[in-house]
Design a protein around this nucleic acid. Sequence first.
DNA 1: TCTGACTACTCACTTTCTTGAGTATCATGC
DNA 2: GCATGATACTCAAGAAAGTGAGTAGTCAGA
Lengths: 206, 206
Amino acid sequence: MALRHAVLAALLDEELSGYQLAKAFDLGVANFWHALPQQLYTELTRLEKEGLVAGREVVQDARPNKRLFRVTADGLAALERFAAESAKPSFIRDDLLVKIQAADHLDADVLIARLAERERFAEAKIELFGGLLRQMRGDRDEAEFLRHGERIGPYLTCLRGLAFERENRDWCRRSAEILHARRHTSRDAAPDTTSPSSSSPARSRP
Amino acid sequence: MALRHAVLAALLDEELSGYQLAKAFDLGVANFWHALPQQLYTELTRLEKEGLVAGREVVQDARPNKRLFRVTADGLAALERFAAESAKPSFIRDDLLVKIQAADHLDADVLIARLAERERFAEAKIELFGGLLRQMRGDRDEAEFLRHGERIGPYLTCLRGLAFERENRDWCRRSAEILHARRHTSRDAAPDTTSPSSSSPARSRP
DNA sequence: TCTGACTACTCACTTTCTTGAGTATCATGC
DNA sequence: GCATGATACTCAAGAAAGTGAGTAGTCAGA
């Protein structure tokens, strides 16, 4: 039971439907919590049953009706209790890192391709977060906004996400370069007049 | 089924027992994959049944016997197939970020305490990773090691972990400072001569 | 000699997550 | 006029992950 707190936190500043919440989890919230739409609907139902959020039906004619949820006083109290507990270390699972861990036993080209994919992804995230941050702080400069702005929680978490993706991008780039350089390592000293095929340390398997 | 690949990757360079593997998952591997001992034992059993790892009994007299596992050719092939798939975006879940997301609605002192805890934790990790990296590269300097060292996979993932924890530490420090500064915001400086008690942005609740 | 910590695992149970499919309406473009 | 994609959800089944308790011997220190 931890998704629930992420949902409560995401719902604090605006009333959202399950669908909108799912969108939010695809954008900003995804930096520190990942969940599929189905989980969110399930969790919202549970939270409503326990009185931590309250939903209200909104009838629409151009689209299907929806239910908007807001956090109740009990919900806020639950978040407060949660904040008082000392936080668990952040929980990461990364396929890509698993692959790179095995780098010495796998084909370098394949890994370089994976690193390039991730680098592009990180770049897109960086753009996205940059935009979100600009939007949140409006015309103020960052220091001023952080000193006197009204809603800095989402801004701070977004800053963390941005830093994370920047590190990601840089690490991907650097790692790919290293793997690339090692493929040509057997022949020369000054970098690379590219070799034809075999006999490299990071082998391309038979 | 994803833990299995993390296990295979961790087992590539050395033969380990379930117990030792659990230790490894508490140190380096924990950066990109987290798992409890029970899960590892379960996974090892499954992997052995499928022939992706091979175990052998080692009789000890001073301690309980143990089973050491190594990756088989099939296991390596499975890893290769895994590496060929494009990696999912990294999966993060962080309690602390959830709490900070809700910062505008929670007690600032509580959050500052959480940030301080995490900062200390990150600091410890930084030390740990620094040590692991030194150990892996021995007396070589980093660039040289990355160019010609034999086992750079674990080194690269450890570098990622180090960068992550550094960012973590810096972000915690900065965020705590910001939250701290805002508590005193009603009194001083250029903008804002506002009110005495109520209506401060980061309120300490009743 | 008793306590607690370390090595080395196992079993059973529950919760959570993921996958896949399905429903229904409206707007847009080709 | 038909496919598509967006809005807005629901349900069911299965895989994966997490929790709690238990076993059993060794060693070091109080």
